[in-house]
Amino acid sequence: MIYIHAIGIHNTIPDNQLPDLKCELKALSGKVYRRIDHFIQLAIIGAHKAVGELNLSPQTAIYMTSGQGDIMVFDRVRRQRYFQKMLSKPVDFVNLSSNAAGFYVASHLGLKGKNLFLLHHHFPVQVTLLAAQNALNLRQQKAILVGGVDEWIPKPELAKKLLGVDEATVLGEGSNWLLLKAEAEAALATFALEPGTLDKIELQRLLLSVEAGTFLAFGSRFPAAEVADIMLINKGCKRYHFEASCAYYETLPLYVLNRFLGQEQGRLLHLDVSKGRYMVMRVDNNT
């Protein structure tokens, strides 16, 4: 069993304009940062909201994930090279490697532990949490700060195509973090993740064992009809609605967990699906 000790939410629905995060970052952290871009600002803000006021062990690891990483700097560098025929700035070249964001988060929080930037095509949040859960269970790490960061891209029409979502989808941005430890003392909640992907029958079997009163949250890719079927079969469960409070980004599941823990009391099962395979996360702040 592993435990959630802190949560931080930064979640916005931009109104066709990239949010200016400079002032927010300065107000939050009291520091002025140079050589960082929007993606890195976003990462620091979310991490600071989770643990900025805590006295973390310097050995705390950072496992950060994202759907597309620092895509705006990537786009800028490519455009400068191919269309404007000019050299990109050294700072942009360094920040191209999305793990630069992890460096600045570590620097901001005074951390020296393992610092990973991880990606997965379907389940970036769940597989990152799987790696963290395993490292904590093996006592390879004592504490891991897990973050999901996705920035809003100013060309929404193109962005939606590259994200593979339909035109009606509203895009958002977020930086949501949680602090995981193997120790229970002073924890906010327990966390557990089914270690593999499930097929539909395995998911149904798992849902049969769910206690009455459990909240169910569904990932953005869940077909509405399937959600309705699951809720019909599992009448003792309550649907956890979060959809009106956010727009689409790929690390949204971290927002959902954190929002639940900030607002509700109880057990939550977060179900997500991609290409007929399911992943299930469970948080519980009852005890």
Binding site: S66, G67, Q68, G69, F74, D75, R78, R79, Y82, F83, S98, L119, H120, H121, H122, P124, K155, E157, L158, K160, K161, L162, L163, G164, V165, D166, E250
Partner: peptide
Amino acid sequence: PIEEDVDDDFVARCKRERVGGGK
């Protein structure tokens, strides 16, 4: 896809298919 984005028709031509670091 980003290098292909050289003309106004690109967005129309671009496939609706997720790309990203895990691809």
